[in-house]
Design a protein around this nucleic acid. Sequence first.
DNA 1: ATTCTTGCAAATCATTTGCACTTTA
DNA 2: TAAAGTGCAAATGATTTGCAAGAAT
Lengths: 136, 136
Amino acid sequence: MDTLAARSDALLRQKGIKASFQRVSIFEYLHRSKEHPSVSQIFADLHPCIPSLSRATVYNTINLFVEKKIAIPVHVDGAEARYDLAEPHHAHFHCEVCQRIFDLPSEDLAVPESLKDFLVRETQVHYRGVCPDCRR
Amino acid sequence: MDTLAARSDALLRQKGIKASFQRVSIFEYLHRSKEHPSVSQIFADLHPCIPSLSRATVYNTINLFVEKKIAIPVHVDGAEARYDLAEPHHAHFHCEVCQRIFDLPSEDLAVPESLKDFLVRETQVHYRGVCPDCRR
DNA sequence: ATTCTTGCAAATCATTTGCACTTTA
DNA sequence: TAAAGTGCAAATGATTTGCAAGAAT
């Protein structure tokens, strides 16, 4: 059968990651959450369903995902890192009022002339301000 | 007389900041360092000259500078924050080998259409990869 | 059976805070 | 001398680590 779990499973293996229950759960959580969750949020939401889950496992898993390019960390100010599935490149907008992070459609930001001798592995574009909901 | 110290002094006061010896020292350190230093680096380099200096004061001062828009934090991965004087907007390149951060001349990154209902207060463009010195 | 993964607790690291002391206006 | 700034040490919060137990191959 071709359940969601089975598909996540396949995707992880394809990246060279053994698909444990915890890992698949965290992967699917990232997939369904639009909140760019922090480790604490992931843990808080998953712990009720998986009582044995440990914070360290969430950290392990997230770090593994980042290393394998499945997820990317989003750093806002000095706070806890937040994570996003590494979908095709897109920019982020961080609302300083509600703390939400919005995905923006990828804009093809040309690598500038001044970087011609650099090897650019990653580009991050980050906006900060106030989102429409918080403006009034 | 118009020493460097006197000028820094004036600049800080103009931003509404009382110009203590520590604050002027940290401001000048930021000014002369091209390293985008972290609090630890600032402390380590200034402590020998100012033995009474405390880490907490460096944190206080840096936070004050950020609040007053004199400095901006640069977050690289999960590591310690690093700081830059808030010169006219420019992008950053972070070398993942030597950990240096390079300033790139400001490129006028147009705010994308998708943000028309957002209030954009700040834009950060961040590249990561390998710098020319580390490429061979 | 061996290897990888998990969970817990303790350790570490960056940063903040409370408070007493000092400096400055 | 009142207000603001500093330094220390303890507290907090995020993240990592060591290690014993458990699961998968």
